[in-house]
């Protein structure tokens, strides 16, 4: 075979690989979306879960609520620390040994398996504090899971701010910190927002870090009781809370009736994928929109 034929053959191979990957993705999404949509009904979204072991399908309302609530709690904790850390990495970190150590820490933390984070949460936030399985514990575990990503997002967004703007601000006699908060952060905002929403999608689907921190069950929730200290209140951060993805896992690992498990988890997976896809699309669109507004004006 001569070089030209070899070249054509290789090109063909690369095209096949690309097509294979795209087909796999379409197959996976198609399977979840087309199979799942038939299980979705108003009742499925708004009712409490049935005892699936007995073959009752029930709904996913508490899990759906828990997933979003946990996401919000996690973001409330993560955002300030993440932005602070990102600013430090982008602006204050000098090439010292401490910075090197810091980068190593970030690298290690971002590649920790999420089950390890879950186990650390179990040890510290469940057993040591004596809280038991709680939303608060889950949110803190997810914070550990999310922090390195958040720091990187903020750091990259700030580093991407044009140098002229920073220098112009400093030349006007504005101090470093004021330059960061008044000039650089607003410019970096689109990047931070996009990165945060993408991270939110990741948190929304995470399960392994939550199994042993937020727990695998939810108490009976009373959606009319909004007092955060009440036991049955959905807002109470010190109650156990299974999220949607934990519920999918739980149903599949417990259920004897595979038919019910398939319906419950098929429907839940549909919702999960839809939310994650919406987050991804939303992040892209928002990023593009803000970028266009900033550049065209």
């Amino acid at each position: 075979m001569n070089a030209k034929q070899m070249d054509r053959l290789a090109t063909l191979f690369f095209y096949l690989v690309a097509i294979l990957i795209v087909c796999t993705l379409i197959g996976l999404l198609g399977f979840i979306l087309f199979k799942g949509i038939s299980y979705i009904s108003w009742d499925f979204l708004t009712e409490a879960p049935g005892s699936y072991i007995l073959g009752e399908v029930g709904g996913i309302a508490p899990m759906l609520f828990n997933s979003f609530y946990l996401l919000i709690l996690t973001m409330i904790i993560t955002l300030p620390i993440g932005i602070g850390g990102g600013i430090y990495m982008a602006e204050y970190a000098k090439p010292t040994r401490f910075t090197k150590f810091l980068r190593l820490c970030m690298e290690v933390m971002s590649s920790l398996p999420s089950i390890i984070i879950g186990l650390f949460g179990l040890l510290l936030l469940v057993q040591y504090t004596g809280w038991g399985y709680t939303l608060a514990g889950g949110a803190l575990a997810l914070t550990i899971f999310n922090l390195p990503l958040m720091v990187r997002v903020v750091e990259q967004a700030i580093t991407a701010v044009p140098k002229d703007q920073k220098e112009a601000s400093l030349a006007l006699g504005i101090t470093h910190w004021q330059t960061i908060t008044k000039i650089m952060l607003p410019v970096a905002l689109p990047g931070i927002v996009t990165g945060t929403i993408l991270a939110a999608g990741r948190i929304f689907g995470e399960a392994a870090a939550l199994l042993f921190t937020a727990g695998m069950s939810s108490p009976n929730l009373d959606f009319t009781n909004w007092d955060p200290t009440a036991v049955s209140s959905p807002l109470n951060p010190f109650r156990p809370a299974a999220t949607l993805s934990v519920y999918i896992w739980k149903v599949n690992s417990d259920s004897l009736s595979t038919q019910t498990a398939a319906i419950v988890s098929g429907g839940s997976a549909f919702i999960l994928i839809c939310v994650v896809l919406l987050f991804t699309i939303f992040a892209r669109l928002l990023g593009k929109y803000i970028y266009r507004r900033l550049t065209s004006s």
Binding site: A18, G205, E206, A207, T280
Partner: peptide, 20 residues
Amino acid sequence: VLQPATEILVGIPSVVYGFI
């Protein structure tokens, strides 16, 4: 095509992979 595809693949939660 391929880059959005990889981004979506990243986003799919691991339980969903397990379920599939």
